[in-house]
Design a protein around this nucleic acid. Sequence first.
DNA 1: CATGAATGAGCGTTCATTCAT
DNA 2: CATGAATGAACGCTCATTCAT
Lengths: 224, 224, 224, 224
Amino acid sequence: MARRDKRQDIMRAAEKLFTTRRFHEITTDEVAEAAQVGKGTIYRYFQDKEDLFFQTAMSGFDELCDLVRRKGPSGASFREQLLEVCGRVGMFFARRKQLFRLMQAEDFRMALVAGSIHDRWLGHRKQLVAAVADVIRKGVAEKVIREDLPPEVLANFLLGMLRTRARDLADAPEAVRRYEVVLDLFYHGAGRAVSRGTAGQAGRGACRTRGLPCATGGLSTRGR
Amino acid sequence: MARRDKRQDIMRAAEKLFTTRRFHEITTDEVAEAAQVGKGTIYRYFQDKEDLFFQTAMSGFDELCDLVRRKGPSGASFREQLLEVCGRVGMFFARRKQLFRLMQAEDFRMALVAGSIHDRWLGHRKQLVAAVADVIRKGVAEKVIREDLPPEVLANFLLGMLRTRARDLADAPEAVRRYEVVLDLFYHGAGRAVSRGTAGQAGRGACRTRGLPCATGGLSTRGR
Amino acid sequence: MARRDKRQDIMRAAEKLFTTRRFHEITTDEVAEAAQVGKGTIYRYFQDKEDLFFQTAMSGFDELCDLVRRKGPSGASFREQLLEVCGRVGMFFARRKQLFRLMQAEDFRMALVAGSIHDRWLGHRKQLVAAVADVIRKGVAEKVIREDLPPEVLANFLLGMLRTRARDLADAPEAVRRYEVVLDLFYHGAGRAVSRGTAGQAGRGACRTRGLPCATGGLSTRGR
Amino acid sequence: MARRDKRQDIMRAAEKLFTTRRFHEITTDEVAEAAQVGKGTIYRYFQDKEDLFFQTAMSGFDELCDLVRRKGPSGASFREQLLEVCGRVGMFFARRKQLFRLMQAEDFRMALVAGSIHDRWLGHRKQLVAAVADVIRKGVAEKVIREDLPPEVLANFLLGMLRTRARDLADAPEAVRRYEVVLDLFYHGAGRAVSRGTAGQAGRGACRTRGLPCATGGLSTRGR
DNA sequence: CATGAATGAGCGTTCATTCAT
DNA sequence: CATGAATGAACGCTCATTCAT
């Protein structure tokens, strides 16, 4: 029982310390102290420092997965559902900033490793993508999402856009950071409605007015 | 001149070594050896190891900036110009994989530092975003790109999508990895044309047939 | 009784593990596992790890002592008795190789310690020497062993020769490793009979033919 | 030039520290401090701690080899030459006590390792045995040493006896520790002359009186 | 300017020992 | 008595940085 607790404590400590420092800047001493356990205890639950961060990152995927999969408000439209998912993921990226960073760091590392570790990682990553893809699939079924691209691919792009929002637009104005903006871009793209159909901006406008900022002129991203 | 050369050699060495290892896994000994210079020489051109990687990453931004800014084929339409830019950026991400990774790593680190280093970094980053935004701005002028969002924001998303393509869809089928796909998504989004305008799918279809894969059904991302 | 058993188990485990590793390369975890007891149990029977090996080595001396003291075949000549002893000691060195090594290691350590531990060790060591000396003393009584040197000194040398045989001549040809060779060297030395007495080689030869290999020319030690 | 010096310094330091402690009780910090070098410097000259002690021990063999091979006084008889060798080896064991211990410790370890390290060790060990065997071979040529056993085997036994003298008889009375005693035992063995030839003790006596203690009755080994 | 031998602070990891159960 | 989870002192080793040549 305490077993699970200590393991959790250590991972939480690693996550917390990752807020301000990188993997190689965090010492096991610090982790142990932050987790309120002896240094040796870390090695009872994790093979080594690398494994600790790896497992912590994987648990992050699981957590995020659960978040995505959690049932949204019943009776919501697909669009509302997707917005809900965006909100949850974006919230996670913001609130669990440390874990988000840790996950990205691990994801980054995975480009360099192979073997079972890489496979385990990929498995968890795919779970997340699949969870998002499942939502998107509903949109496909409802004929509101294009079906010429696999939902998984779209899910990757959507997650990427949320990542962009979280990282590169962290200091952008509130209006730009609204989930509706991300969702709208994901949905309709950056192109002007005028270039499509004959209805001019009307069609687009109609869509956009569903709570999207139509007049964000003058917005500009500032340095973080 | 020789001064410039050694500096370059060292940065190239750092970049090369970054292919298979992370910052803290690369030793200055290795860099010195790979660059064919004495270990002490590194410290003549760079303040410390961190500075070496920082500057290398910044030079990467400059390089990428030049690539984006380089005049495309004259007489090309906006769309063709944007496609050209996507191609160049995507090419850079693929061919200069190491440098790409190094830049991402530094970008990652910048979340943790402040002060002049952070500012210098942001300056370079903004240059890149601005370069892409400049291209997008043309689309706005031509009324084919929406103007409710600042071009810089759109540039960030476009770069993010290219990053997604390079990293998360590295092993996706060729059809999915085509720049037209990214561009189409950026342009029109993931939504179905039917939901917009009155022209039905015609408008969308017409647009999509501009060299975009309309029949990619059955595509699926495979694990990297 | 159970007490005795666990103590024995632990010592056996230590002995066994000593086969392939040195004191500091053997962990108490391993000992505990090999002995099928909890790690803490070791500390019920032994003060610490050092004490465990110390006592194990001492028990080795006792065992070897018993072997030396055990009554040989009645009616045997002194020479036969000595040969018997050599055989037993040599057998012990070979069969209980691990314990032999452990004893030597402890013996080695004793050069560095003082106090009661050193004294206890010396006591056990002396027991062994005394046991061998007792046999030799019979030879002195029978006037076949020189009396100008204390039997204990001779016992030390004999044990040393058996050690040499076991360790340095482990890979020597069978003919050289025969106990008769050790015993003959101990008895008559490496010198030629011709240099002694007036009887020329006859005396020596006569002696040697007592079952000793007179024609071992061409023997050579190979590397272990 | 300094290169050789530091290497020497470090080995001397290791040797010195081995006086009072065992391998695993000596820290690299201590070695560095005793050698007056930085800790990292050790690793410029030696692969690791194990290698340091290994090489130190090997240098001990070389040193001892040189000692054995050094030309003795010209015109000396074989016996005098052998006595000289015994004296030198014994002296080495006594004066370079630490190195002697270190060598034994390594020799001890070699029973557990295989491969090139084991082979290198064996090579050095054989050099020493060969050096002693070379001396003994002269005795064989002069017909004073038996030829039914390979000189190398005899050399091993002689070295073993000197080891016994150094280790087990360290506290024996001066009379017993004389090199003549070892040499006499090696030469004539522990048997009584009376049992050989017809000349009774005369032959033996004649031999023994060459400076050997014929009346050592009452000698006894005391505890160290 | 260039070099690379020397340095030693610092880190990941081990493992003998303890003690609550 | 027996256990094994927890501990943290201690150690081997690395590697960024310096500086004499």
